[in-house]
Structure formats: C-alpha cells, structure tokens
Amino acid sequence: MKMNNIFVYCELTEEGKVADVSLELLSKGRKLAEQLGVKLEAILLGKDIKEAVNQLSYFNIYKIHCADDDRLFPYRTLPHAKLVQSVFENEKPEIALFGASSVGRDLAPRIASALRCGLTADCTSLEIGDYEDKKAGKTYKNLLYQIRPAFGGNIIATIINPETRPQMATVREGVMKLDPLTSLNQPQIQEIDLSLLTSVEEVVRIIDRHIDPPKVNLKGAQIIVSGGYGMGNKENFGLLRTLAAVLGGEVGATRAAVDAGFCDQERQIGQTGVTVRPKLYIACGISGSIQHRAGMDQSAKIISINNDANAPINAIADYTIIGDVVQIVPKIIQYYKQHSK
C-alpha cells in the first residue's frame, strides 16, 4: 500500500516570517519523508505571505498549500482550523506536525478532534518504527513513534497511532534541529479554496493585541547559567544574572524556579520551555528532572552545582561541585575575574 505524504503546518511570526519551530519541523519532516520514501508538504496561511513562501525553498518541499487573506492573520482558531481540516480531508496525510506553540497547541487538538485522530503533545523525539499488536495479531509497519516524558517526567512514553491518520504530533521550538538544505527547490504552490470560510469562522474577533519584540535568545546563547528551585529565593537567583553577565551568557531557569517566581517564564528551559544546546551549561541548584534534562542534555559541557551529591543532574554533568550554590557562585566569579585576563 502506498503511503501518503508528511505535512507540516507552518505558523507565521508577528514579522511575517515562518516561525523557527516550523522550519525545525520541516527539517525533521524532510528526514522522516526520506526514511519513508514519501514527500514533504507544507501548509501556510496568512496575509502577504510571499516572503514567507520564499523561505520554504530550502527544505525539499514538494508542495505548499497556502492561502493569503486578511482573515488569516493574526492567527485565529476557526478560520485556520477550517482550512487545515479541508486540506487534510483531501490529502489524507500520513503524518502531520505542528509547533507546540500557543498557535499549534490551540489548532492541532481542534483538528485532531474533528478528524478523530490521535495527537501527542510536546514530543521530545520522533522516530519511525514497527508495532506488533499481539492481541489482535496485527503488525503495523513504519509508524511514527511519538516520544515524550509523561507523568510528571518520571517515565518516558512512546505513543503510536496504529489505525488513525494523520499521525499528529506537536513539538516545542528548539527540540528539532534547524537543518535547511544548501540547494534550492521550487515547491508547487496549491491555493486553498477560500470560499470555505463563512461567517461561522468569524465569531471570534481580535479587538487589540500587543506583541513585544523577542527579548531573550536562549537558543543562540553559547553559555547559559541556569537556576532551579534549589536557589531558594529570588535574591539568590540574582547571583546567576551576575555570573551570566560576567561570562557573557544568558540566564535560564527550571519550571520549578519559574513557578516559584524566581525568573520569567520566557527563560524556562525544558520540555515545556526552550531546548538549548550551548557550549557550556551551568546548572545551579537544579536536581535535574527528565523534563528539564530534555531541554539541555545536548549541551557540550555541563557543570552542576548542587548540595545533593545524588541529584540526577550530576549524572549527566561533566563537572560537579558539591556544596552551597550561594557560596560557590561568587567564588567562580572571583576566580574567573582573577584568571581570565
């Protein structure tokens, strides 16, 4: 039986560019498509999307399904859901990938529900593999393994959708590697029929919006000084800002530290935050839950500073300092200043 193609829903940034998370998914989608011997297709909905369409020439995309209309930007659930659903109903994708952003997490479940197909949120890895259903005596070839930490990160689950299509998954920004090709290709352009949109899709109106320019660029930082709940309080967390400033890095945080109010959410690293791959990651007062490690374990060098010698983070650290982080960080600053000249 011939397998259908892989689709990536591409979302647009405020500046009218294709979002990084979508480009990362196109990079992953291309590799999955090669592995399965199928083609990669993209969906792009917005207004004035010409420039964005041009951005999609480096991913060996076979076809872009697009629509250019005032009603499609800024993103609203119902018009996007209606059009994406119609594309999926016509094209019957094998796999459909969405960014796990405020857009993708709003849209993907609505579509999965309408098509009655399975959806896995916040995958940290996507692989292709087989599945043998022993009870039913059936073997499924080349399914999408949707891999994610589950149950508060105490386990890792591999989820599959044996029967329903598309196999849908959302993935956070930074989890997949951005890997455009050097050679250009010219995707076919397929205009989506806008007459599908009716007044029903217009019930939600955007009255006003304030979108800030991006402030922190954790993904691009070479050095990240990151703090966990073990920092104790907001004042102690300030020490990490000093260390980051001295080393020329950025400050990151665990979800527990963000929840405790030590740090802004935009600096959260982990499964439900940003995934980073810096040259050096200094983990301060971080025990190292699987969700946090999923966002930083590909760092080139990891230093853990922790008073618990058995903290799970130490197992993946290149250097571990056992002791009170509040005393140790100022010493690092001191010795760095002393020796760096």
Binding site: T120, Y131, G153, I155, A157, T158, I159, I160
Partner: peptide
C-alpha cells in the same frame, strides 16, 4: 486512537 507502545523508566 493513541496507544502507549512502551514505557521506559528513566535510565541515566
């Protein structure tokens, strides 16, 4: 529609 194929405990 989603099935859990397997559960792995965390091995460091």
């Amino acid at each position: 529609p989603t099935k859990v194929k397997k559960i792995d405990s965390i091995v460091l």
